[in-house]
Design a protein around this nucleic acid. Structure first.
Length: 269
DNA sequence: TCCTTATGTACAA
DNA sequence: TGTACCTAAGGAC
């Protein structure tokens, strides 16, 4: 589930359900139990996301820092809360809603300076109003690393994951192996603007859709998607299938322990 | 029931 | 670059 759009959506959803209330906090699985006890009865005053990091603010001073990692999941449900099933790390519950967190890489109580340190090590986030795309561009244009690796580096740009990386490079016809220093300012402008749009749509729909109207299954007279990751995409997890635009075969390769997907015909070196 | 896989990251060597 | 860690679902047997 979790690229930046998921986390920003969760910040909104936690706020909608719990802001201004004093939820009960529990950790049925146990790991977070001491912190949950400290927070029970505290008001949720703010929620915030930066890249793939989620922050829940209590009493204006105590923050829960959540990172879902690859496996973390969050599920909301209506009150009354049922007995927890499986390994629930953190449950918040008030009179109307409960929410369960499972399998996060990180769920910790942190101080404002600790929170600031996390912001300081993250690059600009296309979903945040305070983001400065030039900061990302400066790092990219000084680097011999591939643009595919740079887009996944959270210090360079925060919130982009394996799906948005593959899709945005396809949409701009950029070979994933091109060095960052060879990305032109015009190309970076277009990539950043596109990510802002795509990721905002991702927050709205709670899924990743990247296919332009003229290339949808209906427009192209092809069968609808078969992938189950949730959205309509050009190349992500489509290795061996025909490109939606040129009909050529989508290719895959490993890059820094992740699977890269691209169309060699549409994304020429 | 076992094996593989996944939208992620940190740390060791 | 490799490996360890978080968890659940789907497919192969």
């Amino acid at each position: 589930m979790p690229e930046g759009h998921t986390i920003h959506r969760l910040a909104q959803d936690y706020a909608a359900a719990f802001l201004g209330t004093h939820p009960r906090a529990t950790s049925p699985q146990g790991t977070f139990a001491p912190a949950a006890t400290l927070l029970t009865g505290a008001e949720l005053t703010r929620t915030e996301a930066h890249g793939k990091h989620l922050f829940l603010g209590f009493r204006d001073t105590d923050w829960i820092h959540i990172h879902l990692g690859l496996f973390g999941k969050v599920t909301f449900g209506p009150a009354p809360e049922p007995p927890p099933t499986g390994t629930v790390r953190l449950r918040l519950a008030n009179d109307t809603t409960y929410v369960d967190l499972r399998g996060p890489t990180t769920c910790a109580l942190i101080t404002p300076p600790e929170k600031q340190a996390i912001h300081d090590r993250l690059g600009p986030d296309p979903l945040r109003g305070d983001a400065d795309p030039d900061r990302a561009h400066r790092r990219i244009t000084r680097s011999r690393t591939t643009i595919a690796a740079l887009l996944m580096d959270q210090k360079v740009i925060a919130g982009v994951g394996n799906v948005y990386r593959a899709e945005v490079l396809f949409r701009h016809g950029i070979d994933p192996y091109r060095a960052g220093k060879d990305i032109t300012p015009a190309e970076w402008d277009a990539i950043w603007t596109d990510l802002v749009d795509l990721m905002h749509e991702g927050v709205r729909n709670n899924r990743i859709d990247t296919v332009r109207p003229e290339h949808t299954p209906e427009a192209m007279g092809r069968p609808p998607r078969v992938d189950d990751h949730g959205g309509e995409v050009y190349v992500y997890r489509r290795a061996g299938l025909p490109c939606h635009v040129c009909g050529g075969e989508i290719r895959t390769a490993g890059l820094a322990a992740r699977n890269l997907f691209w169309c060699p015909a549409c994304q020429r070196p």
